[in-house]
Amino acid sequence: MDSLQNLIPETMLPDMMFYVFAGLTLGFGILVVANPFSRNPVTSAMFLVLAVISMAGLFVLLHAFFLAAVQVIVYAGAVMVLFLFVIMLLDIKDEQKRKIKKGFLLAGLLSVGTIAGLFIKGLHATRLDAHPSPTTEGDTALLGKLLFGQYVLPFEVVSVLLLVAMVGVILLSKKDLK
């Protein structure tokens, strides 16, 4: 431990952790979308869980501690369990390897590449003179004050939205849909 601290100065550690978590997030993301070993949706779902958790690590590095916790609990916990439930409920066999048409693949890669290129080019064209400020901590207390003060109306609207979603899901999953 002592030798490790000598090896890596303390100010360097968050930056190194950034590269670790960013690499993990992107790697797991690739495995969600295009896993060379398995076409099974369960594998994709498991890698999505890992991607979400490594993204929570990035949130911690950005000092958004509350959001990191919410990310793990809601996404990796609730949403992904729902996904897995549905996959197992549907009992989908391994996706039979259907040939992806070459034209589709080319067009998809081309369009996504263009969009990614535009993003990166735009990022380089913009002068970002923003710097991290120690005042913005993802403080739960501060976030709560904002949420129940300035943003109390959107908060209530979102709760109604959740209710609507719940009613809709119950209606949709009835056996005899009229």
Binding site: A22, T25, L26, G29, I30, V32, V33, A34, R39, P41, S44, A45, L58, F83, V86, I87, L90, I92, E95, R98, I100, F104, L105, G108, L109, S111, V112, G113, I115, A116, F119, I120, L123
Partner: peptide
């Protein structure tokens, strides 16, 4: 990182054929 991840998601939406994926 965010842009790359977004492009990756878009690629999945365009290329994959399984609704769940």
């Amino acid at each position: 990182v965010s842009f790359l991840l977004f492009s990756l998601g878009l690629l999945g939406v365009i290329l994959r054929r399984n609704l769940l994926v």
